[in-house]
Design a protein around this nucleic acid. Structure first.
Length: 606
DNA sequence: GTAGGGTTAG
């Protein structure tokens, strides 16, 4: 029986194919059917049917049409068969710019950026001029390779053409610079754009967040507003929300949340979860939970977000309870979920639980163990003080331990004051993360805690000799929607005098409560009294000082720090929480410290 | 007649 157009549209792909193979059909209908079926194969990622279609096209001569041949290349690309895509392309006697585009996009879609770039060169050698579509695809290919020099060399010959004026090309170029880490080119390209649309702005925001310049990302929001730019996409808002979370800028975050609601943008699960994470990163667990409860269609990411929200904020038991309810409700935890669960276990001291999950993850759940899981296991052993076991474990891991895992051990060695293992752990971190200053400071502290001043000095000299600079301690505090930054040793602030007076006043009370400044934390060669002064100028203390004078009594003080909080500041902040009857939340590079009535949620282990 | 941009949530 002959097919009708109606059949071709309605019947399953395989039935149409079978009918076409069984008996000849009018060429017009075959052509039409082939085109439609190619489209359906591509949409359904149905590779076997694509192969059958290919055969049919050969048999019926449909493949002689360059148009249909291009469509077949496209379908193969979408079905993940680049080889077949290339084979079809190679049979074309006279490929046009579309043909090349299909081939290039097949490579891109299947993570073969180098091949895409090779075809780009080949097309030019064969005299086919790339258009804006091809060029934007090629910028994506360069972005995938993260090769900035390559990007520059490909862009240079295009600079004199009108190509870069195309808005899509310009945005792809911008994103290429971002993903290749060429942040100067990135900024320059952005400001040189003749016009910027929402994609340009979002790319810009993401770029600044990516390199830790969240504050300047939020400044862009002001520029956008001044330009009268209307944000219409949830993605743009999610990016901005992310910046607020990273800065723990709760007032700006809340303001943004209101604005999202009034903007009428559809708050999809992604944006909703971004907001949840923002509150969590601002230490507002209750508000995060509120959003979690309001989630219309939660998924495993929503659950995992809330699990880690609890865990990072010191609510380890709640994190585990939520995880159990997640499983009960039938949501399927994945590898990332278990990273959070193990984190909650190890920080909360649930050793048996942790080992249970760690050992059953692969055999019972089929979730492969990854570096993060091993890191948690190391942390677990090290926290319990089983440093030698932790070291043995690291040396016998089936995947080579990363610098983070060795750092866990090194940190544990500081807490448990183990010089020998600490020195070995530090060596590993030096090797695996040669530019990090953290391990040098930790090792030096371990030595000075043990009274080995000469060794401590040696480590510091080694650090200097290797040209490694300690990132200056920075702290942020947001007051009335404005973020103030304090940098250790360079803290200019209009209220500095008042802040220092407040710190001195409070420290008197603190000393009455038994606080002794831990001047060992000051590595300079200085008098004791001077060392105390240096401690007072640690950025987190200044930030707390500002919080004390600028916010009403009993208001929670929230600080963000760019490195780990120093042990003296940690002790001091705990005492301040007691003597001033304020909650103090410090988010450092690793975790939250919720301090209240002289105690910290981290249980003095960080 | 075919094709190109922000991977955004743990």
């Amino acid at each position: 029986m002959l097919l009708t157009r109606h059949d071709v549209e309605r019947l399953p792909v395989k039935d149409v194919l079978a009918a076409l193979q069984r008996q000849p059909h009018p060429p017009g209908l075959v052509r039409e059917a082939v085109e439609l079926l190619l489209h359906r194969c591509a949409a359904e990622r149905a590779l076997p049917q694509a192969h059958q279609l290919h055969a049919l096209m050969l048999a019926t001569g449909a493949l002689r049409s360059r148009y249909l041949s291009n469509k077949l290349v496209q379908a193969y690309g979408q079905c993940g068969d680049v080889e077949s895509a290339h084979a079809v392309f190679a049979c074309q006697p006279d490929p046009n710019v579309f043909s090349w585009m299909m081939l290039i996009s097949a490579c891109l879609r299947n993570a073969l950026p180098r091949a895409a770039l090779g075809h780009y060169r080949a097309m030019q050698l064969r005299g086919c001029h790339p258009d804006a579509h091809v060029v934007s695809a090629i910028f994506c290919a360069v972005a995938d390779t993260a090769n900035l020099e390559l990007g520059r060399s490909i862009t240079a010959p295009l600079a004199s053409t009108a190509m870069l004026h195309d808005p899509v090309v310009a945005n792809s170029l911008l994103n290429m610079y971002r993903r290749c880490g060429g942040m100067d080119d990135f900024e320059r390209a952005f400001w040189a754009m003749p016009s910027r649309d929402e994609v340009s702005w979002t790319t810009m925001l993401a770029g600044r967040i990516q390199c830790g310049r969240e504050a300047s990302a939020l400044e862009l929001l002001r520029v956008m507003d001044q330009d009268g730019f209307r944000i219409t996409s949830a993605l743009t808002f999610a990016t901005l929300v992310d910046a607020c979370g990273n800065l723990s800028a709760i007032a700006q975050g809340r303001h943004l949340h209101d604005r999202i609601i009034t903007s009428g943008v559809c708050i999809d699960v992604v944006l909703h979860t971004a907001l949840l994470n923002m509150y969590a990163k601002c230490g507002r667990v209750d508000e995060a939970r509120e959003l979690f409860d309001q989630t219309l269609e939660p998924n495993n990411i929503t659950f995992s977000s809330m699990v880690v929200a609890y865990a990072r904020n010191g609510h380890f038991g709640d994190a585990l309870k939520l995880f159990w309810s997640m499983e009960q409700d039938g949501y399927k935890p994945d590898s990332v979920t278990f990273t959070h669960v193990l984190y909650a276990c190890s920080h909360g001291g649930f050793v048996d639980q942790a080992w249970h999950y760690f050992t059953t993850l692969e055999p019972d759940r089929g979730i492969p163990l990854v570096a993060e899981h091993f890191g948690c296991a190391v942390d677990l052993l090290a926290r319990a003080g089983w440093l030698a076991d932790a070291e043995k474990f690291l040396n016998r891991m089936p995947i080579p331990p990363d610098s983070v895992s060795w750092m866990s051990l090194l940190q544990a060695c500081r807490i448990h004051r183990n010089v020998e293992i600490g020195a070995r752990a530090a060596e590993h971190v030096f090797r695996l993360a040669p530019h990090r200053a953290g391990p040098y400071s930790l090792l030096s502290n371990i030595y000075s805690d043990a009274g080995k001043w000469d060794m401590a000095a040696k480590v510091q000299k080694l650090m200097r000799d290797r040209g490694i600079k300690k990132p200056g301690g920075r702290s942020w505090i947001e007051i009335n929607g404005k973020t103030s930054e304090f940098i250790v040793g360079d803290s200019w602030h209009p209220d500095l005098v008042q802040i220092c007076q407040e710190i001195q006043r409070v420290s008197k009370v603190m000393k009455e409560h038994g606080y002794v400044p831990d001047t060992k934390q000051v590595l300079h060669d200085a008098e004791e009294e001077e060392k105390e002064d240096i401690l007072y100028f640690h950025s987190e203390k200044l930030a707390i000082g500002l919080g004390l004078i600028k916010t009403p009594p009993k208001t929670t003080i929230s600080i963000v720090k760019n490195i780990r909080v120093c042990p003296d500041c940690h002790t001091a902040a705990k005492v301040i929480s007691k003597v001033t009857e304020r909650k103090i939340v410090i988010r450092d590079i690793n975790l939250f410290h919720h301090m209240e009535d002289g105690k910290c949620s981290c249980r003095d282990y960080w």
